[in-house]
């Protein structure tokens, strides 16, 4: 299964959600489908995408937050599972694309290669109740739809191939992305205010 296919599959569902992605391939593959103002690409600070997601979800209870994460990033912040479990943002879905590789930084194997480390088991062990693993597109699609229907925190670990896009580059400066993402949220809140 390819991450790009998974992202393409859920792309229509992301239209009305707040989306935070990690750096590199994941960000680029989402961007290539068409940038939206509700997308924030965390192009560095590996590990913090889910922490940003928690900060968003906790303070915007009427929004759904989707975090598109990766094994290399999550491995840098395993404590995030424990904080997510403790505060249980019911409006957040944490998708982890596990390619067993630090693909964007040279393709070295990560600790999840060949199933040595099981991120889904770690998430469960941290106390997250709804954790799904997906090995193919059908399983991923089902897990994502199930998570959307659930009014609770979900983690989906999707095993994907270690392949990325054929080019990198966005017509979007990093602070510009932050400013526009914040403005999008503010305007949406203002529009919803009575």
């Amino acid at each position: 299964m390819e991450r790009a296919k998974c992202i393409e599959m859920i792309y229509p569902e992301l239209e009305d959600k707040l989306v935070v992605t990690i750096m590199g391939a994941c960000a680029q593959e989402l961007y290539n489908l068409g940038h939206r103002e509700n997308f924030f690409y965390l192009q560095h600070a590996m590990g913090l995408a889910s922490s940003i997601g928690l900060g968003l979800a906790r303070h915007l209870p009427d929004e759904r937050v989707i975090v598109l994460d990766g094994d290399g990033s999550v491995l840098m912040n395993l404590g995030t599972f424990t904080t997510l479990a403790r505060y249980r943002p019911t409006n957040m879905i944490h998708v982890i694309f596990d390619n067993g590789s630090l693909l964007s930084t040279g393709g070295f194997d990560s600790q999840t290669t060949s199933g040595i480390t099981d991120l889904a088991a770690i998430a469960r062990g941290a106390g997250i109740e709804h954790v799904a693993s997906a090995d193919n597109e059908l399983q991923f699609g089902e897990a994502f739809l199930e998570a959307l229907e659930l009014d609770d925190l979900s983690v989906i670990v999707a095993k994907v191939k270690a392949v990325g896009p054929d080019h990198y580059g966005m017509d979007l400066e990093l602070p510009e992305n932050a400013f526009r993402f914040r403005r999008f949220i503010r305007e949406k809140k203002q529009a919803a205010a009575p």
Partner: peptide, 25 residues
Amino acid sequence: DLIQVAKEEEAIGIAAGAYFAGEPH
């Protein structure tokens, strides 16, 4: 609203999320 983290770097992400959400943090 107090959020206790497991490691301080998490709080940088949470603070960013709160900022995007328009919540003083």
